[in-house]
Write a protein that binds this DNA or RNA. Structure first.
Lengths: 194, 194
DNA sequence: GAATGACATTGATCCAAGTCAAGAACGATA
DNA sequence: TATCGTTCTTGACTTGGATCAATGTCATTC
């Protein structure tokens, strides 16, 4: 059951029991084993995910190099670019761990919204929250060095450092694995010269 | 009058004449001279802008350094982070040119949405478009070098290079003005060695 | 326990961006 | 025209990340 979704939403919006019911009925939960690729470059994005358990990574291949765009963990929404539109995806989605997620499709969502227009308020709120997060991420990334970004990660999402291999963290920070290794070394002995 | 807003929206959504009327009545247009600061760090963000003419820059000050987050031009929406919420803004907004914009405030917007709930669909669509753009920007920025970002700008927004001083373009690309100058030089004589 | 493969660290070298300082180009204005 | 301020360019030097190659570490498996 996906009462978790209702619980989550209720932090941002008052969710009546009826609404919770609607949500539970119009969505379905699915499990994916580790390393499942949910979306490939060039494919049409058909599904959105709300993660209940596990971790999804979004990345692109550029000149054969794997570049991490974002990590998504429990209670986060993964909405691929161009979801439901007839455009080929530029990025990949893969499960880094065994993952359980509420899966939604645009047409199903549309039907639900048509039937329960009140839900649009919730959607609007969620989308706004998402846009805000993106703005913050963009501003942060633009205005910081790899070292600062690493320190930010240590402070704000230490869990990621535990569950994700370092070379993927490096790609997320925008550097090569070797560089992240050196950044860590640098930071580990701050007591030296100057 | 702000029928321009309705015209713009009609590209994404069917806008009835009635809706256009509502929009025109519930918004007002304002002019700002060049260099007007619309929002300062620490202030509460009270207003959103839809630019009819001119250009707005969003930036933050970090260790006394001015870092450009984004440029907004005609037909773009400027929605400050935390708009209407009781949190101090982290960024500044300034007009780079004499600017004319449709100005909206959250409570006014709320009133309009309460009166014309159909508008929520429009809002949702606009917010989704905004979130998409942000996702693309973030992915692009994360996965490219300053040189690539400059080439991207030349290709996709050559107008910005015309109307915005180079040192602000540099800060937008994430480099110092000197570096942008050298990037341009490098690119201008591609016929050499190797 | 030896071999394999995946990940992390280290060293050497290269290059792009940062920094500091000087000058060039340009427009506005006296 | 002379002067001033702003923006852009150039030069010399430093620094941090990229790259390539070697080695270290650890878990898995035969």
């Amino acid at each position: 059951m996906s009462t978790e979704l209702a619980t989550y939403l209720s932090r941002y919006m008052p969710i009546t029991d009826e609404l919770a019911d609607v949500l539970a009925k119009s969505s379905f939960v699915q499990s994916y084993p580790r390393a499942t690729v949910l979306l490939r470059e060039g494919e049409r994005a058909e599904k959105g995910y709300f993660i209940l358990k596990g971790c999804i990574r979004s990345y692109i291949l550029k000149n054969g190099e794997d570049k991490t765009i974002e990590f998504f963990i429990e209670e986060e929404s993964v909405l691929p670019l161009g979801l439901g539109k007839d455009v080929p995806s530029e990025h990949f989605l893969e499960c880094l761990e065994d993952t359980v997620a509420v899966v939604s499709t645009p047409d199903q969502e549309e039907r639900t919204l048509a039937e329960y227009p009140q839900l649009k308020t919730v959607c609007l709120a969620m989308t706004e929250i998402m846009a805000e997060k993106l703005q913050v991420s963009l501003a942060r990334y633009r205005t910081s060095t790899p070292e600062e970004r690493y320190l930010d990660l240590v402070e704000k999402r230490p869990d990621l450092l535990q569950r994700i291999p370092q070379y993927q963290i490096a790609s997320y920070l925008g550097v090569q694995p070797e560089s992240l290794s050196r950044i860590r070394k640098r930071l580990s002995r701050p007591t030296e010269k100057k």
